[in-house]
């Protein structure tokens, strides 16, 4: 790397930028730690009832005891597997359907009202049907995850495909490219930012789908722990599972964001 020599003014400017960034990070952490501290202190002095609200130390204790009972990673693993399978299936199916819709204007016109209605339908309403049709357990939960996120994947990708620059489409046509060539050479690469955006949306929805699926019927998983903890009034378990969900969902989102940063550099 070449070492640049900056003017005094520019160095001051850079320093100011750095300070500002550091301040933002500092305040972020401060808010989190302060909230946890207030929560803990209020619970400690019984201002709030830790049986109802739990407390950070009790959450940590619960996680440690789950670990000792060897159920912590099992439950995390179950939910992760459901979420990831559902997420991958929804993205793949959504992409394929969007491609088919892009290919045929008639199909778009015909199917549009169905997509709109399916998108606004609260998917949890399908819960009983899923149990009856598919049964309970892993497959049913994955299915739930897919139907929660697939419609948005379709809509997002189709919007990405349709917004490809008109001039570029004309250029492809003038060069004699057919529909399939236009798809592979132009539409797919041009819609990469939309694809990354779809991944981000799908990550969030997949977590909703898998936890919702576990609420409806499950034998294990973080959603199962939350639902069980709620039924037997073990709020420590509910809080602990929620905290783990927070961390996992954030981690998955960050991974997608990182992939985005690497792949869409040149757009």
């Amino acid at each position: 790397m070449k070492k640049e020599i900056y003017s005094r003014e520019h160095r001051a400017y850079l320093k100011k930028l750095k300070l500002k960034r550091a301040l933002v990070i500092l305040v972020r952490w401060f808010i989190l730690l302060a909230a946890l501290a207030v929560w803990e202190i209020l619970a400690l002095f019984k201002v709030i009832d830790p049986f109802i609200t739990s407390s950070p130390s009790r959450v940590v204790k619960t996680i440690v005891s789950l670990y000792r009972e060897k159920t912590l990673f099992y439950n995390i693993g179950v939910t992760l597997a459901e979420t990831f399978t559902g997420f991958a299936a929804a993205v793949i199916i959504g992409y394929a359907v969007a491609v088919a819709l892009w290919m045929s204007e008639t199909a778009r016109a015909v199917l549009e009202p169905y997509i709109v209605v399916l998108n606004s339908l609260p998917k949890i309403a399908l819960g009983p049907l899923i149990i009856i049709w598919i049964g309970t357990g892993y497959t049913a939960i994955v299915f739930m995850t897919v139907i929660v996120s697939v419609i948005l994947c379709i809509m997002n990708m189709l919007a990405g495909f349709m917004s490809v620059d008109e001039t570029k489409l004309t250029l492809m046509k003038a060069m004699g490219a057919g529909k399939l060539t236009t798809l592979t050479k132009l539409v797919v690469p041009a819609s990469l930012p939309a694809f990354m955006n779809t991944l981000k949306v799908a990550v969030g929805l997949s977590w909703i789908g898998s936890v919702m699926g576990e609420y409806i019927s499950s034998k294990a998983g973080l959603g199962n722990l939350i639902s069980y903890g709620g039924q037997v009034m073990r709020l420590d378990l509910v809080m602990a599972s929620t905290a783990i969900l927070c961390v996992l969902a954030a981690a998955m989102y960050l991974i997608v964001a990182l992939i985005e940063r690497i792949t869409v550099k040149q757009y």
Partner: peptide, 13 residues
């Protein structure tokens, strides 16, 4: 034929 348009339509990727 080669067709050259108003916008260059170069592919950024």
């Amino acid at each position: 034929m080669g067709y050259m348009l108003q916008k260059d339509a170069l592919f950024e990727w």
